[in-house]
Nucleic acid binder design. Structure first.
Length: 127
RNA sequence: ACAGGCAGUAGAGGCAAUCGCGGGAAAAUUUUUUCUCGAGGAAAGUCCGGACUCCACAGAGCGGCGUGCCGGGUAAUGCCCGGUGAGAGCAAUCUCGAAGACAGUGCCAUAGAAACGGAAACCGCCUCAAAAAAAUUUUGGGGUAAGGGUGGAAAGGUGCGGUAAGAGCGCACCGGCGGUCGGGUAAUCGGCCGGCCCGGCAAACCUCACGCGGAGCAAAGUCGAAUAGGAAAGGGUUGACGCUGCUCGCUGACCUUUCGGGUAGACUGCGAAGAUUUGUGCGGUAACGUACAAACGAGAUAAAUGAUUGCCACAUACAGAAUCCGGCUUAUCGACUGCCUGUCGAU
């Protein structure tokens, strides 16, 4: 349930461009979320961190945070869609809790959150 | 003990628990399980030098680029080691060197009388002549680079002699130049002799010596779909177009086979092979070489080391492999180790 396979990751420049250009985007201060409804790409995900964030070490850390957040929230996603998560500058100094909160919030706004509302609220209260 | 110099070492802080990631092996078998390995001293900048790959290539010259005290080390270097010279420091030690300016050309702003012609007389110094005259002053001619002034630099420096005043004019020492003898592989150092001696800039052109073919792993190689498209051979119904109004014929849609080019993509290149590291012996002042022994083992391709919790410690910097090595440079926290120098104290 919490695994993240290699085959689930979006590969290739063309696929990334497709999601960027055709998909809808949702953003907060930590993460930008691109969503593309397409059965062909069902369940696929990509992670990105631009050069503005800093050096290679910082970019790696942002990608790892995004990967970890997605891994833990994967079961709460419904629908046939492809996602791309892009880190923003605020995320470089955040912890994984912040990343998870941001991701859940964005998923709800995108309308692809699967979990029961109570479950989400519980999650928020717990923090 | 304090102050300083040089050389070097290790660190995703350690341990435990749960979840998770990349490679390899085995089992099972079609996606699971187990075991095991998994970033750095700079992985960085891409500044040099190689290995490797492809392209070009008779040989030589010209041109271009780079390097530039001397010798050695190395696969090679612009790197390293040792020495020479200059400078800094009481010292340990550190810093800097671009060969040649009698091969030639060029430049030296402003200031200054004059900026390279063995030059140059602005103030000054000395002297002669004339005029006025007590001292002395004015005008003109000549001598003079000691003093002043300008400048980054004024054509050897200091001292004594010398002179009308001065001057390498003469002498001594120093500096430079030339010759010679000796030490050294050499850079260069030391002695002696000579005549007294024509600045700087080569990161201006240039001269001399040495080195260099070009592009780079997105190199290069192998396999190669769909669809588009090329060539050849064979078959060829009906309809359309054109040569011509008609017939024949040609062109040709279409089908089959073969061939080569090769796109997307996949695999190789790509990591158990190495100019590797460590130790000991031998050679060498050293860099390093050599023999033997042992150790190490990343390999992704939207690109692997993370998250949470607990305890200890609390200082965690700079920072992430991408074909691989040797260097240099830059970034950087808090530590530790060894050797050396100076001062103070004790013995």
């Amino acid at each position: 349930m919490f695994e993240l396979k290699k085959s689930e990751i979006v590969r290739g420049k063309k696929d990334f461009q497709k999601v960027y250009s055709l998909g809808k985007s949702y953003a907060d201060k930590n993460i930008v979320l691109y969503v593309l409804n397409d059965e062909k790409y069902n369940g696929k995900v990509g992670f990105a961190a631009g050069k503005k964030l800093g050096c290679a070490v910082v970019r790696n850390r942002v990608k790892r945070l995004l990967r970890e957040a997605y891994r833990l929230c994967k079961n709460k996603i419904s629908g046939d869609c492809a996602l791309i998560l892009v880190g923003r500058k605020n995320l470089t100094e955040s912890k994984s809790d912040d990343a998870i909160k941001s991701l859940l919030n964005l998923l709800r706004r995108a309308g692809i959150s699967n979990g029961e509302k109570n479950h989400d609220e519980n999650f928020y209260r717990a923090d």
